[in-house]
Design a protein around this nucleic acid. Structure first.
Lengths: 238, 238
DNA sequence: CGCGGTGTTGAAAATTGTCAATAATTGTGG
DNA sequence: CCACAATTATTGACAATTTTCAACACCGCG
């Protein structure tokens, strides 16, 4: 699998607002193009990087969806997130110069490879980029706080409702429907992310369907009553 | 409570290895002193910052212990971490220029206030500092992955065992005993962090004591059999 | 010395997990 | 293109874990 060597340009990427939403002077914008060394295509089920591999680059997702997962010493694993177009993965590798999780493509995907050395170099000169890198990392920390809240204090229904709402919101921000979504991950992967067994995910999904809140047909989900889902996440008495 | 205006120096701080372990040229080391604008003392139960407050600075803990917690819209809260000397808090505020969690002192504490603008400025010039800031943020992301694994896939005993081992390990790195520790947090706070009710924490602690793995006397804990605790975290069959 | 916050323990209830059977879907190779 | 195997999803019955509710003990502090 040799990575393909296609030169690309951030300056006219249509994901710019998602991936590098910095207010840049025209000259600076062109310098950003230097960040992306290559693009790389990852087939479904293949990994972009794996736990233990040396860290060299951050990756901006151009197309497709990934999951990231950590594995404990005794082999249990935990999905730590699902990432889609415009999102940045690989931040875990910075601290020890090697990755501490796996990034697996859930469908055929393509990423921009941004060598971290180059990012650091350029962000010393382009203040807006420096700020942006800090924001991306901080955003990830805040996102994970939210996951900890979900895992630590929510019940199965609340977790799944929050998950569906989050997913459809992010898809909508990318131009997809506000109410229909196609799950790119299995029930087991959803369960791993939410700290539930796949059977619990399946049952809870069925319950939502029985209550008329969603329509579920395998991986196709239609949100019929988003308000009801929101009420589940944030119970009424408050 | 006006913050006290004491000028301080990183260059001769005995926490340097914990808080700013960068290999710096002598000249650069002195410039680091400019990072710390002031120190600030926080009394037990008081907050260093709160959700919603404008973000201005990162804080390096000099003495004491903090907890950070997030609160959901409906008022549930989740402890996201316990931080001690040498650790950096406030990273959550970078992304939206305001804090998204509370930092509460669990005992009388003191922090170094490092205005983030100054950090960004200086890390444009001092490469080692830039790298270090990135590492601190990445380390926090990796730590949170571990918490997600704990919350998502471990049972009560495993969570508490992992918690105790982590705590005593960090204390030992700071020169305290390898086996004795004083919990600065309540059972409820431990429970919130571990996604358990306080009764479950108490019961599990009692069980560990009954099994001879620890000696518990209120907040004083002595680890009698660290290997047994490790076996609980990482079950044998692997 | 008593009070409020904290911690422990028991019994019952609720939630989620486990195991198992079956169905539906997808991928693969003939 | 079809058929078969493998994966994924659903559902039921039961078990395990954790929570809830309640009572009581302990501790530190005014």
């Amino acid at each position: 699998m040799k990575p393909e060597n296609i030169k690309v340009a951030c300056s006219n990427c249509n994901l710019r607002e998602l991936c590098m939403p910095v207010g840049l002077a025209p000259g600076e914008l062109q310098r950003l193009d230097d960040l992306v060394a290559t693009r790389r295509k990852i087939k479904r089920r293949e990994t972009l990087f794996r736990n233990g591999e040396p860290f060299t680059s951050l990756y901006a997702i151009r197309t497709g969806v990934f999951k990231t997962r950590v594995t404990s010493e005794d082999g249990r694993d935990q999905v730590t997130g699902f990432q889609m177009a415009g999102e940045i993965i690989g931040l875990d590798g910075i601290v020890n110069d090697q990755h501490t999780c796996d990034a697996v493509a859930l469908e055929d995907s393509e990423v921009c490879v941004m060598p971290f050395e180059r990012i650091e170099e350029l962000s010393r000169e382009v203040t807006a980029l420096q700020r942006h890198v800090h924001q991306i990392m901080s955003r990830e920390i805040v996102r994970e706080h939210g996951v900890m809240l979900l895992l630590g204090s929510m019940r199965a229904e609340e977790r799944l409702a929050a998950f569906l709402l989050n997913l459809v919101q992010r898809l909508h921000a990318r131009g997809f429907s506000r109410s229909e979504l196609v799950l790119r991950m299995t029930r087991e992967e959803i369960g791993s992310y939410l700290g539930l067994k796949l059977e619990t995910v399946s049952r809870t999904m069925s319950k939502f369907a029985a209550d008329g809140m969603v329509e579920v047909e395998q991986r196709n989900v239609r949100i019929l009553d988003p308000e009801a889902l929101r009420r589940i996440v944030n119970p009424p008495g408050c």
